[in-house]
Design a protein around this nucleic acid. Sequence first.
RNA 1: GGGCCCAUAGCUCAGUCGGUUAGAGCGGCCGGCUCAUAACCGGUUGGUCCCUGGUUCGAGCCCAGGUGGGCCUACCA
Length: 526
Amino acid sequence: MHSDTPFLISTAIPYVNARPHVGFALELVVADAIARHRRQRGREVFFSTGSDENSLKNVRAAAELGVSTQTLVDENAAVFARLREVLDLSTDAFVRTSVDPGHRRAAEKLWRACFARGDIYRRDYRGLYCVGCEQFYAETELLEGRCPEHGTDPELVEESNYFFRLERYAERLREGIESGELRITPEHFRNEVLAFVDRGLVDFSISRSSERAKGWGIPVPDDSEQVMYVWFDALGNYISALGYADDGEHFRRWWSPAGERVHVLGKGITRFHALYWPAILASAGLAWPSALVVHGYLTVDGNKIGKSMGNAIDPAAIAERCGVDALRYFLLRHVRHGRDGDFGEARVWQCREAELANQLGNLLNRTVHMITRWFDGRVPTPQRSDPGHAELAAQVQGEIERAFDEARTDDALNALWSLVERANRFIVERAPWKLAKSRSDPETEAKLASTLYDAAELLRLVAVHLRPFLPGSSAELVRRLGLDPDAEADWETSCRWGGLVPGTRVRLGAPLFDKKASPLAPPARL
RNA sequence: GGGCCCAUAGCUCAGUCGGUUAGAGCGGCCGGCUCAUAACCGGUUGGUCCCUGGUUCGAGCCCAGGUGGGCCUACCA
């Protein structure tokens, strides 16, 4: 893989009818870790996110609050955009579908391209429509003829909409997914999509009457009576972020078949990304995404997250109390890739204390203290490093690379943690505090020096690998080891054992993860 | 109604192709150590593998039927 191959990564763009909750923080953080990891390995990365503002749900939410739709959307989009700082994200673009001029033009251009291909046609449609839900229901979905959400009688609505010829792309989609042209991870979501294709794909509606949409949304080109179905315009954000509307150099570079194009999304919208979106792209003569990374949903203390449940946790509040890195750490290690996971502030505190403070923070502290005390704060020269350490370094690097290839951040962190565990065990085995009592013996002195070098070098490797996950803590770790966090380093070189130069001056400092910060004393039993 | 996913230790989860005594981390308990943030290290405790039936010499794993939870459900087939 050439280092100049472009790597594009995106999150889905959420509705902004309410404030963000931790579930979306998971998606952002997973995408961010992947983006940072690829940059670290020398790739050029473009990481985009944004907000889906043309949804009818936003219109409804605004009406309930008695504010204009644009006002609601502006305010909430700002809160989502602020997550960049709150969650320490490395995003390069934030697309706002209701205000970015480039987005509207991109959606129009995409529509026209599909239309020119003959994949968009008009058809009469009649269905049972619930005004409360703003959506159509099949008869079988109704409960005793009534809306399952509201218990009201649906209206029989008849209108003419535009449709996309999905059926035409069924075989093309199946082949692309089976061959891995479009990778879907984890595999069980790929299987679900293929099973869905097997049952037959039918054309889908891509517009609504302007009246039903309350005038909100992007008008269909050359037909002001209709607005685009929100999914058509929302999916387009991935290319409007790159400047598709102007077909400039930036767009051609990043949405190029030569690079990688990865979408990170929640399991609920897999179908839109695995079928509708590639079909639209194929119709418009554009490349497909190369991979979909599908994540599961979070529950909170075992309960589904919902506004009506009043348990929509604000990720900013968690980051404020526990620290961004503890939140990122929990989401990236303790929520398994592609699976649902349970979130709770007590869980974050618990792993912050047990793993971040006790295992990692204390490892740094004890190592720096010993070097300061016995070697005047300078990393000693090792006579002979433990040969197992170079081997471990290579093994961990390989495991992390393989895990990231499949977006398994949890496994990558597990692999990384074996370095932390190894270092703590190694220190106890060597018992440097005993060696320090017989320093007049050259053999003992050499052993002491080698022991502390190895501990510090293991910590350097931890910092290298921790960087995509906990960028702030990684940088601080690097500073404590007396190195420059901003120094650019080649991936292979930085992963190799022995990078720490003897004589480097380490720095004492406040605990990396201060346990006194925990409000939960004692930590909750889980 | 249909499609799909999940269920293994108190908690979070591994468990390969069906193969001997079902594993890890966290928590609990006991011990060691004193460099360190009362941290660290070792040992140990802990199981109705959701239920019922089937296939098999042998099932956590395969098959059928249930139970519980989750996601999707399109002009429906």
